[in-house]
Amino acid sequence: MKKVCLVKGGNFVLGIEDCYILSRQNGTLAPETVKKKINIFHLSSLLSCKHCDRPEPGSVFLQIKKGKSSFFLLVDQVIDEIELPAETTRLPPPSPEFAQQLFPKVAVCMNLIVLLLDPGQIIPVAKKLGPKIGLLSPKYCVQVQVHKETNKQANKQVLSVAPAATMTENGKKAKPVAVRKKIKKDKKRPKSVDEETFKGVMAWTIAQFKQGKVSEEQLSAKRLPPGVVQQEELSDTVIQYLIDQISLRCQESITPHRPGEHHGR
């Protein structure tokens, strides 16, 4: 039997073997710990491939060590401690590669699936995901506990800096203005895309728009159904550029023009 700590990060629940957890701290880390420059990962952001905005109040820091790998992991909640049978299995296909890497073992306990985290894979996976993905800024590590008190003030700040979301004719939220500006500024021409891929990506992007799926995550190249991109050696950046351009056109076609507004061709 293995003793496992069940933790929650965003929408995901996973298990960490007790033997890898050195300590647990609610809310904050001591400033001297933060100064040691140990990596601090925010589980929810890491698993959602995002930059960490602000940790949830009541989050828990877990000090993790496996072999040479040592870091803090901030989880939204420690749910329970359970004992798992030694018998484990692997993630079934078509599980994504990153998930297979982070969770090489899976167990079923009383009809509950427990994804067993391999702490040794957190740093390699985070590096592959991109710079700063899943990493928590040290400034939040000593502020999580006081977050509740300063919540109102923080919300005001967030409101003042958040890009204004535009509404479409259907009343659905379109991409924030700031995102659009970024796309327009990017004049760099990508590598050419073949006609089949172009048609496939265009059809998918338009379908996403028709369903009101217009958030950055919903229009991510990673969400394209398999088989749409058959062209070899086409990077995600190029595909994302194409999706962004098509979505920009979709937005323009559904956003009513203001009187007196003219578009040069």
Binding site: V13, P92, P96, F98, A99, I113
Partner: peptide, 25 residues
């Protein structure tokens, strides 16, 4: 079914579920 969300999954992969002690996508 009780769906267990799987990180990094594409939109069509809704998650995992336990069926007769097996983990199925």
């Amino acid at each position: 079914v009780e769906i267990q969300m799987l990180p990094f999954a594409a939109e069509y992969l809704l998650g995992l579920c336990a069926w007769r002690e097996n983990v199925l996508p």
